[in-house]
């Protein structure tokens, strides 16, 4: 199928690409832009490994057609850190040991970043619900939840 022009903003940079109409946002990020931090675990919307932030909301990018993200603002795991350092969520995952094999980690981090924007003072139950669409086989989630709670605290301090 003929590739068609597409424009959107990824990690703060306006991008113009030619993308086949059937291509998902996930495949576009990975195959066309080499942003391989976003992972494909199932390509069916079940595992959450491909979570990115699209216009402020976490989405599973395997279920988003690239062309439906026309003119959108997209943040991937590669776009989180600033020149000042890692995002509080990234730092908390490191400190609390919220990652092992790391394959689900970018998706979990993006789900947490999106969630904490809306709920800066979450309970543990809120966090479990927020990452309820993200499968992790290694950690048993305990340290992931601890990391997100720590990140929430850090972000509140940063914002106060």
């Amino acid at each position: 199928m003929q590739k068609q022009p597409l424009e959107f903003t990824v990690n703060g940079r306006r991008r113009q690409l030619l993308v086949a109409p059937y291509y998902s946002l996930l495949d576009t990020l990975r195959d066309e832009m080499q942003l391989t931090g976003t992972k494909k675990g199932c390509d069916e919307g079940d595992c959450g490994a491909c979570t990115v932030i699209l216009d402020g909301k976490p989405v599973t990018s395997c279920l988003v057609l690239a062309h439906s993200a026309r003119d959108a603002e997209i943040t991937t795991v590669e776009g989180l850190a600033s020149p000042d350092g890692l995002h509080a969520v990234q730092q908390a995952f490191i400190e609390k040991g919220g990652l092992q094999c790391g394959y689900c980690t970018p998706g979990l981090i993006m789900a947490a970043v999106g969630f904490l924007q809306d709920n800066p003072v979450p309970s543990e139950e809120d966090v479990k619900f927020a990452i309820g669409g993200n499968l992790c086989r290694c950690t048993g989630y305990t340290k992931v939840i601890e990391a997100i709670m720590l990140a929430a605290e850090t972000m509140r301090e940063q914002n106060s």
């Binding site: 795991v77 890692l86 730092q91 040991g97 790391g102 980690t105 970018p106």
Partner: peptide, 10 residues
């Protein structure tokens, strides 16, 4: 982890 930075940044 020694590989944590690479894993949290993609």
């Amino acid at each position: 982890r020694v590989d944590a930075w690479e894993k949290v940044t993609g």
